[in-house]
Design a protein around this nucleic acid. Structure first.
Lengths: 235, 235
DNA sequence: TTTATTTTTAATGTATACTTTTTTCTAGAC
DNA sequence: GTCTAGAAAAAAGTATACATTAAAAATAAA
């Protein structure tokens, strides 16, 4: 009761804009594994937790569905999406293509100041790892990839990357929850990519980026991303 | 009055699912230029046209906003999105990366039957061009790229491509509306890409695909800024 | 005539009421 | 004991009512 009314007040603070709040609320519940894969998300439960009406809740759920974090079964229920290993390979496959593009664009459009900002994000990721905050560790890891796309100044690329990264974030949190000793992508790789970026060495940056992702996602030559070996040919 | 009730009945036919109908209704209004770039889309106008309530209309508008065909100004109004040449260069830049990936995946996962289906789509596009149906001509042209992604069996790639192609569709319709003599992408290129696909010649297929898109959109080989300035080939 | 202020209006955001469908629970048959 | 049928409940889809805000209009002041 006490908690409910508190939340209500907080959400109501900048009313007229409930849906984005609810969106973040549910999204963060999912990313922090307070609701897990396959678990139902009844509109009523969110309504009751936030003390608002169904309208903005439905809007938030639809948006999350669009982003693939929630699956809506019409007239039945909404549930947290499930990602299997095949899904993640598919995600990674697209990400490798787009991150490669991001590197190219970043080298063309990025200033040294941009790259220094990028390096700072890696530093923060290292900090998070030291402190043991896994969620923050993952967030900063992925923030590197997002920032890289930002530097490229292509809004469509950036939007797509955000949407993909959101799902990867959830997947990694899940994996770690299942098995706390799950290894994460090697942060040091990011520094290596950075070095190539600052030298404006596109080929090398892309090569390191691909190794980084292919290595982590375990995509072998027979897997989908095996193609990426000889592909500095395109674009 | 008469028209209103007719539409209402039609929409109500499979009620319980109004939002998707409304989504398609507004989307097709936009793609067919019945509502043009920058024009406002008051919820009330759709409500009145379809004889339904605001709820599913709002849902449809939000979805269109997610897909970038509509811009929602909170508490003010929704309008049809505007795409300038820079936007289209950015879109095309991402598409080239993703279509290249699509070619790789298609060669890896596609059967001969898949490619025959693909060729049929090109044939239909040629038909549409002969018949002078510009909308169908564009639709079939883009259907080729969508089908190519479908063959690759990567759902994330496919979703992204659909979303990008939707915007390109609108942009091309707009350009043709502004200047009816606007040239469209060369259909024959699709046959050339097809040939390489059937030979499972990845390098050649990608090369032809890139030439196809770069040629039309006037993007330089670095995947960066376009050259609309000096190319009257483009619009 | 112009500009500032107030009022009105029109539009969106939110809450609630109503409808329809799906699920759950229970009673009865086998 | 389980299976089926029907009633009851729960949940989502839709419609409508209400609240809030921003634009437009109207009025007042300079």
């Amino acid at each position: 009761m006490e908690k409910e009314s508190k939340t209500r007040i907080e959400v109501k603070n900048d009313a007229g804009d409930l849906a984005p709040h609810v969106y973040r609320y549910i999204r963060d519940m999912i990313l922090s594994l307070q609701i897990k894969s396959g678990q139902k998300i009844p509109e009523a439960s969110i309504v009751e937790q936030l003390g608002i009406s169904r309208t903005p809740v439905r809007e938030a759920l639809r948006r999350l569905s669009n982003e693939g974090l929630v699956v809506i079964h019409p007239r039945r229920f909404s549930e947290v999406a499930t990602f299997n290993d095949e899904d993640i390979v598919q995600l990674a496959t697209v990400r490798i293509s787009l991150d490669s593009l991001a590197v190219r664009l970043a080298i063309r459009n990025g200033s040294n100041a941009d790259f220094i900002r990028l390096r700072k994000i890696i530093d923060e990721c290292v900090e998070a790892e030291k402190s043991g905050d896994v969620n923050e560790r993952i967030k900063r890891d992925l923030a590197f990839h997002i920032e890289l796309s930002k530097i490229g100044l292509n809004k469509y690329l950036l939007n797509i990357q955000k949407s993909l990264v959101l799902k990867v974030h959830f997947f990694l949190m899940m994996k770690i929850d299942e098995n706390p000793s799950t290894s994460l992508p090697d942060i040091q790789d990011h520094y290596r990519i950075m070095d190539a970026l600052m030298e404006r060495n596109e080929t090398e940056a892309i090569k390191r980026l691909r190794n980084h992702m292919i290595g982590f996602y375990g995509i072998d030559k027979d897997g989908e991303a095996g193609f990426f070996e000889d592909s500095d040919s395109f674009i």
